[in-house]
Design a protein around this nucleic acid. Structure first.
Length: 121
DNA sequence: GAGGTGACTGCGA
DNA sequence: CTCGCAGCCACCT
């Protein structure tokens, strides 16, 4: 998104809307981490806020690929919030991402840094 | 206006 | 190696 990449001027939109925008930019078959998004948004060490924002991602009109957001270890910490079962894992696997024991395989290889968005644009 | 909560992270023991 | 703890800040009651 232009407004996201333009600058760290998120004064016009709420915090979690910014998070949604970033998450939506995650390429197909790639994943990112809460901390990475937190740093990208400038919240720094408050990765919790990213997770908090994701809590509101349910029912958003433009679907939020929250399954692509995992913790710094590639662990699907939010899978319980996703659905009753391993829905999060199923979604990731449908994108070609291998998941084992709630952990993304080849995480370091599939990891996508939000800062790359600035370079792409 | 004050207090509690949380889909995290990093460091120390 | 694993386990525990404190810091972080927007949002809700």
């Amino acid at each position: 998104m232009a407004e996201v990449a333009s600058k760290v001027k998120f004064d016009k939109i709420s915090f979690y809307e910014s998070v949604f925008d970033v998450v939506r930019q995650v390429p197909f078959g790639r994943v990112t981490s809460y901390g990475a998004i937190a740093r990208f948004l400038g919240t720094g060490k408050s990765a919790r806020m990213v997770g908090w924002a994701m809590n509101a991602s349910h029912g958003q009109s433009p679907p939020i690929p929250a399954q692509r957001v995992v913790n710094s270890s590639g662990l699907l910490t939010g899978k319980f919030h996703f659905g009753p079962g391993d829905e999060m894992k199923a979604l990731l696997e449908s994108e070609g991402i291998m998941v084992e024991k709630d952990q993304v395989k080849e995480f370091s290889k599939l990891f996508w840094d939000p800062f790359l968005l600035l370079e792409e644009i």
